[in-house]
Every structure is written in structure tokens, then in C-alpha cells.
Simulated scan of single mutants.
Amino acid sequence: MHGILADERGLVIASRPLEATRFQVENIRMAYVFYESGLSINVMYTLDDGGKRAVGFKLADGMDVPEELSSFKFARQKSKLAGTIRGSYFVIKNAH
């Protein structure tokens, strides 16, 4: 995940990662990293040529946008389970 962030957007996350997981369902790979700051990053990577590939960012409720992600616009969405969610994403353009 950190390689994709660096290669695609030149991003280096300053916060310390606390937990990471990855799994595959059929032809889609998913990875999640949760950071000490409250940031969560996920990658969805379809293995098929021309498939969907994206990186998503989620901020904990009340968390300021980290400086390294200040160029992204974060949308707010209400969730019955999670309260207010703020998130953003970008599409992965290269093969990784």
C-alpha cells in the first residue's frame, strides 16, 4: 500500500501504522491500514485488466485532515453505525 501511495501520488503517511490486513475475494484484492492518528486507508485492486483500482481515505470523527492529504477534498456522510464519516479517494492508474 505504501508503495502505491508513493508511486501514484508521492504520498508518505506521517502517522504510525497500528494494524494492517489484506485479503482477496474472487478477483479483487483489498488491503486496509489503520493509523495511530485515526486515519484509515484502504486499497481495492481488481486483478482483471481494466478493472477498478482505487485508494480510499477515511478520517476518524473529529480528526483534522493530515497535512500530507491536504490536497484531497473530503466528503462528509452520515452513517447510523459509524456517525459522521469523512472520506476521499483516488483512482490507481498504473499496475502494481
Score class of each variant (00 low, 15 high):
residue 59 L to R: 03
residue 86 R to S: 06
residue 31 A to K: 07
residue 24 Q to S: 11
residue 50 G to M: 03
residue 70 S to K: 15
residue 65 V to M: 10
residue 20 A to V: 06
residue 82 A to G: 03
residue 19 E to M: 10
residue 69 L to F: 13
residue 61 D to G: 14
residue 87 G to Q: 06
residue 56 G to C: 15
residue 56 G to V: 03
residue 36 E to D: 13
residue 30 M to W: 04
residue 30 M to R: 12
residue 42 N to F: 00
residue 19 E to C: 12
residue 57 F to T: 00
residue 56 G to N: 03
residue 88 S to V: 08
residue 39 L to S: 03
residue 86 R to L: 11
residue 41 I to R: 00
residue 25 V to D: 14
residue 40 S to P: 02
residue 40 S to Y: 00
residue 37 S to D: 07
residue 84 T to C: 06
residue 78 K to A: 11
residue 84 T to M: 06
residue 59 L to D: 00
residue 74 F to Q: 02
residue 36 E to P: 00
residue 30 M to P: 02
residue 45 Y to N: 06
residue 43 V to I: 07
residue 81 L to I: 04
residue 64 D to H: 13
residue 26 E to M: 11
residue 37 S to V: 04
residue 77 Q to N: 10
residue 33 V to M: 07
residue 58 K to C: 12
residue 63 M to Y: 11
residue 26 E to N: 15
residue 57 F to G: 00
residue 71 S to N: 11
residue 73 K to F: 12
residue 20 A to I: 01
residue 64 D to V: 07
residue 78 K to R: 14
residue 83 G to T: 08
residue 36 E to I: 04
residue 34 F to Y: 12
residue 70 S to P: 09
residue 42 N to V: 06
residue 67 E to I: 10
residue 76 R to P: 05
residue 85 I to F: 01
residue 38 G to Y: 02
residue 18 L to C: 05
residue 70 S to N: 14
residue 66 P to S: 13
residue 47 L to F: 13
residue 67 E to W: 01
residue 64 D to L: 09
